[in-house]
């Protein structure tokens, strides 16, 4: 795949279709992959990678990049195309200034899960079907790919590209996953249990804001959490209220716009399951206002920008079963 992408990028640069390419390059370690912009074939040959650790959704970078001079080539995985569509819908990117090459993804790996198995000194990995061969400075290891798959890929919602100018490989289908199972499990707990569960999770938050910074739905030029008058500007939460508030407001702001790309949970250094908050909103929206997948298209109205006169009353929340 990497070869095909490199030659595609070089070709599009050479024929003048694009002037820049956004992709990924290796950092200090083999698994330490970061998004990068390439402007020449030489740079591409030297640094471009696409492998099991290129998880980063690059669509958010296009907010800024698409406004610059010259077209940019973006390689997008299926989930990333939903984010781009949502950004297009919200007029946050200039879609005409982006050339999208859709690339298939068979799931990315989570380096933390590999390290948690006590493996260090990793110099590279190789996937062979369901087994993963890991080379380290201390010798080789093997394990099952499924064991170290990143969480966002385990609950993948779609292998289909919803927007592209060109595809490398075959397009996939929208798939079903068990992504709402944990939300449901929490819903069936008592409110006391839920409260304790979330206290345990949210109190770990260090307010690094990574979840907001990475989120393709969080592109406000003036974020509430940067407002000096809010009292919560870029600082660690002082007590449980501030912890709750940050998470309620962040999740609420992306409700109906979050494509469930999974980036927020992936980047959280404290492993807080933020996706459960987002999915709670998605699940409620689906059940109360009709099935809706943010980013699936660029024309339909977002559920919170819309209403019907027959909508349920807020009391529906109070009528639910579990106390």
């Amino acid at each position: 795949m990497q070869e095909a992408m490199i030659s595609k990028a070089k070709q599009l640069l050479a024929d003048g279709t694009v002037t820049r390419v956004i992709g990924w390059k290796k950092g200090e370690f083999a698994y330490d992959i970061t998004p990068a912009i390439f402007e020449s074939s030489e740079e591409i040959d030297r640094d471009f990678v696409y492998d099991d650790f290129t998880s980063t959704n690059v669509s958010k970078y296009l907010v800024k990049e698409s406004k610059k001079e010259g077209k940019i080539l973006a390689f997008l995985k299926p989930c990333d195309t939903y984010s781009l569509n949502q950004l297009t819908k919200e007029h946050r990117v200039d879609r005409d200034n982006i050339y999208v090459v859709g690339i298939p993804s068979d799931g990315k790996l989570d380096i933390e899960k590999i390290k948690a198995k006590g493996i260090t000194g990793i110099t590279g990995v190789e996937r062979d079907g369901e087994t993963l061969k890991i080379s380290t400075v201390y010798g080789d290891e093997t394990m099952s790919v499924a064991d170290v798959m990143s969480n966002k890929c385990i609950s993948c919602k779609s292998k289909k590209h919803v927007t592209y100018d060109e595809l490398i490989g075959e397009d996939g289908e929208v798939i079903t996953s068990d992504r709402f199972d944990m939300v449901e499990k929490l819903e069936n707990m008592t409110s006391e249990e839920r409260y304790n569960f979330w206290r345990g999770e949210l109190s770990k938050c260090i307010r690094c804001n990574a979840c907001r910074n990475v989120c393709p739905a969080c592109t406000c030029e003036n974020c509430v959490f940067n407002n000096p008058d809010s009292g919560v500007e870029n600082k660690a939460a002082a007590d449980s209220f501030e912890e709750n508030m940050f998470h309620i407001i962040r999740a609420f702001h992306v409700a109906g716009r979050c494509t469930d790309c999974g980036e927020c949970s992936r980047v959280c250094p404290q492993n807080i399951p933020l996706h459960l908050l987002n999915r709670k909103f998605i699940k409620d929206i689906n059940s109360l206002y009709g099935e809706y997948q943010a980013g699936a298209d660029t024309t339909t109205k977002a559920p919170l920008n819309d209403y019907t006169t027959e909508d349920c009353e807020a009391s529906i929340v109070h009528e639910r079963g579990v106390e």
Partner: peptide
């Protein structure tokens, strides 16, 4: 109506008495 329904549901989800 939509906003508050979703907000109240989220508060409930976090274990805040609905």
């Amino acid at each position: 109506r939509r906003r508050m329904t979703l907000l109240f549901s989220m508060l409930d989800f976090l274990g805040i008495e609905r």
